[in-house]
Design a binder for these strands. Structure first.
Lengths: 234, 234
DNA sequence: TTCATAGTTCGATGCTAACCGAAGCATTTC
DNA sequence: GAAATGCTTCGGTTAGCATCGAACTATGAA
């Protein structure tokens, strides 16, 4: 009967709303303290403490004590990937979100999806790279030699990225757009570069990525969509 | 707070042991009746009925009435992929399975992972294709032109596969081997061909794939590992 | 019609776990 | 030292839900 690993155990861990909120909050890639997570989940410290203990014991979180603070983060990229996959299924099949607030609009525009850029801006980046022949999409994205030049020119150290265990390019299905965007270590590096250039900054209390007016223009120039390239843009 | 889709809702659906067992049973890709699933989960029909209703309502299952039977299947490949991802996380981080029985040994050797071949045989197939230059692994598998010839020779209609929406090649992390094997429509087609050739058959009540003695030999000949290729095999 | 099988609905029961108040540690600051 | 802050443990309450027996509907067979 029970063929394979015990998926119910860890699904149940994610299945509680308070814990799910904590996990989603950690998808930004930042480590948060227990108190911050308690606030994020809308429960008291005591309750949060037990939840966090269970999540850690269950292998979903990693914790690091620092003074009297306890910082928590997702245990691995696998966990982040699992949460993204869950979001995809939850958004696709199943109830649509009940209400679309202004918060959601910003979230759809640009957000962090476990350290890389997602939302409309994320898919635009992906499409732009593909349309200009920098990214070759077969059964999974791959950087062309022209693309390698482009990335270096944009200030990304590809050799350093290749050191890591994580794949350079990976695509990730967007729950809001239902289209692909770029994940993997390159995806992360691109977001980091965009931040470093001052084009955008991470809103501290959520996963929303806020582009400045100039930043958005610079972004559109660097990563034009197929249409803008063809027509000369506005 | 609640950024994005409601992942807790569907995680909670998977989080119940009875429901999880049902879902895992459906990972074979076959559609099963309500009674079969009740037996699989070890609960009575009444209990199973409510579970199945919830899973369907939650968008995880698809049902088709046929006479007085009700056949249930996973709603989409996405759901299958989600379950497999869950298995990966559950097997990796977290408790190891309590006991490894003979059932598990067979399961580790060769099993169905949502319609494609997984386990030792699955990773062997993957490694073999890669070692012989049929599969190019960059950031995701891709069939080389030599590989295309090989597949046609093996009796696989690539053009037909390309018609579908699903990607041709995709890699899938194996929970038992912690290594990759081949998913995607090509992965499915390969399993189908292996079955059609009589090399193996699906054990009706589980996800185990049973190779015959001759079938295993033929498989090893067609998909030799790097070592066997180099040394001339046994 | 009568019987059998597949599946659903209802009501009652019992267990699990989420939750918070209060008290208890540990670490930092004054 | 004492006070403050971050986090944990304990105990008791409450709510949700998985479970099954029993009764009910629907399809198919004799």
């Amino acid at each position: 009967m029970k063929d394979g690993p015990d998926i119910a155990r860890i699904a149940a861990l994610i299945g509680d709303p308070a814990r799910a909120n904590m996990l989603v909050a950690l998808m930004s890639g930042r480590a948060l303290t227990a108190t911050e997570l308690a606030h994020e989940a809308g429960v008291t410290q005591q309750t949060a403490s037990t939840h966090l203990a269970r999540l850690t014991e269950g292998g979903l979180l990693r914790q690091a004590k620092q003074g009297r603070h306890k910082y928590l983060a997702l245990a691995s990229d696998d966990v982040g990937h699992l949460l993204e996959t869950l979001m995809g299924v939850a958004a696709g099949s199943g109830h649509l979100r009940s209400r679309i607030g202004p918060r959601d609009a910003a979230l759809r525009k640009a957000r962090i999806c476990y350290r890389h850029l997602a939302g409309e801006m994320g898919t635009q980046l992906y499409d732009s790279l593909q349309a200009r022949g920098f990214l070759d999409i077969g059964d999974g994205p791959r950087l062309t030699s022209a693309g390698q030049g482009f990335m270096r020119d944009f200030g990304i150290d590809l050799d350093a990225l290749r050191q890591g265990r994580a794949p350079l390019c990976r695509d990730c299905l967007d729950w809001s757009e239902r289209r692909k965007h770029l994940a993997g270590s390159l995806g992360r590096a691109l977001l980091g570069r965009i931040e470093a250039l001052g084009w955008a900054r991470l809103r501290p209390d959520s996963r929303i990525v806020e582009f400045s007016r100039d930043g958005e223009r610079a972004f559109a120039e660097r990563f034009p969509t197929a249409l803008e390239t063809a027509s000369g843009s506005d």
